[in-house]
Simulated assay, not measured.
Amino acid sequence: MGILLPQFDLEAFIRATLAEDLGPSGRDVTSESVIPADARFAGTMDSRDPIVVAGLPIAAAFFRQLDPAIEIDILVGEGASVPAGTDLMHLKGKARAMLTAERSALNTVQHLSGIATMTRKYVDAIAGTGCILLDTRKTIPGLRALEKYATRMGGATNHRMGLWDAAMIKDNHVAVAGGVAEAVKRARQAGVERIILEVDHLDQIEPGLAAGATHLLLDNMDAKMLREAVALVAGRVPTEASGGVTLETIRAKAESGVTFISVGRLTQSAPAADIGLDFSIGS
């Protein structure tokens, strides 16, 4: 496939997505009734707007699932920034198969390229600060691996993939445990190695660090408060700004000296990229 998608069954995703479109009969009744079985198409997928590309190999997999002999030429690399009007992929194969797979392929590459395109804007906004952009778990159920792949193509770094790969102690955990120190202590006693502690106030930093937090998430702090927090931490653990981050505010937050900034809207709110697929009768 030419892409890395750990913990994701891509073949099962392709089958399930096509099955959703084909329904219990497994048929594309429009193509079957209108298009001759031996008809062949040539197709060009192109960008209608400037985009950062993500998902072309996945789109290609949809077409190959229905026509293993299809000829596909992917013209740009994943993560490439391209102007409007750029040809992304050329295809030649069975017309019925191409029409049946078209919407699934386009939906996927439009969604992933939309995420990558928004991500790149945030990455560019903090260029030169040394701060690293992170994504979050605010993903569509079932699509986390794909969406986090898209943020990587946009230049971000993946944060937690799920609830299993690090503890993230938030206000509700703290409230039940009786304080940040006790919450962190319990995570350490449970043998958790990565302990991310969310802090809302500066006076939570020292108790959290003393208890063994390995990463501080500085929640909904403005740039001034972030600078104060970074000074208090003094490099002992990585720091992460989170909450209320927009393209207008991210630069100032990054310049506060935090190690990371996490942005939920990368996967939660990115608009689909405008990508089209035009067919012509071909050999």
Rank of each mutant, 00 (worst) to 15 (best):
G55N: 12
D67V: 10
P50W: 12
A59S: 11
D49M: 13
E71W: 00
I51D: 13
D49P: 01
G77S: 15
D67C: 04
G55A: 10
A54Y: 11
A59Y: 09
A54M: 15
D73N: 07
F63T: 01
R64S: 11
P68F: 06
I70E: 01
D49C: 03
A54E: 12
I51R: 02
A59K: 04
A69D: 09
I72K: 02
A60R: 11
A60Q: 10
I51G: 08
V76K: 05
V52H: 01
G77Q: 15
P68C: 06
P57N: 08
V76Y: 12
G77D: 14
L56T: 07
E71P: 00
A61G: 04
F62N: 02
L56G: 09
G55P: 03
I70T: 07
P68M: 06
I72L: 06
D67M: 02
E71K: 05
V53E: 04
E71F: 03
D73Q: 08
L75H: 03
D73A: 14
G55L: 07
P50N: 13
A69F: 05
Q65F: 14
I58V: 15
G55Y: 10
L66V: 11
E78W: 00
I72N: 01
D49I: 02
P57C: 14
R64A: 08
Q65N: 06
L56D: 01
L56V: 12
P50Y: 13
F62V: 09
L75D: 01
I70H: 01
P68N: 04
F62D: 00
V53A: 11
A69S: 05
A59L: 11
P50A: 15
V76A: 11
A54K: 09
R64E: 14
D67A: 07
E78M: 04
P57H: 05
I51H: 09
L75C: 02
D67T: 08
D49E: 15
D73P: 00
V53D: 03
I72H: 00
A54G: 06
P68L: 07
P57V: 10
I74P: 03
P50R: 13
P68S: 09
R64W: 01
E78P: 01
G55C: 13
V76T: 02
V53N: 09
R64M: 02
P50I: 14
I70A: 12
R64C: 10
P50T: 13
P57G: 04
D73Y: 00
I58C: 13
R64L: 06
E78R: 09
E71I: 06
A59F: 10
A59G: 14
I72Q: 00
G77T: 08
V52C: 15
A61M: 12
A61L: 13
L75W: 04
G77Y: 00
E71N: 04
F62A: 05
E71R: 03
I51V: 15
I70C: 10
A60C: 13
G55V: 15
V52L: 12
A54P: 15
P57A: 09
E71M: 06
V76D: 05
P50D: 14
A61T: 05
F62K: 08
P50L: 09
A54V: 12
D49K: 10
L66W: 05
A61C: 05
F63H: 15
D67E: 13
A60L: 10
D73F: 03
Q65H: 15
L56K: 06
I70P: 00
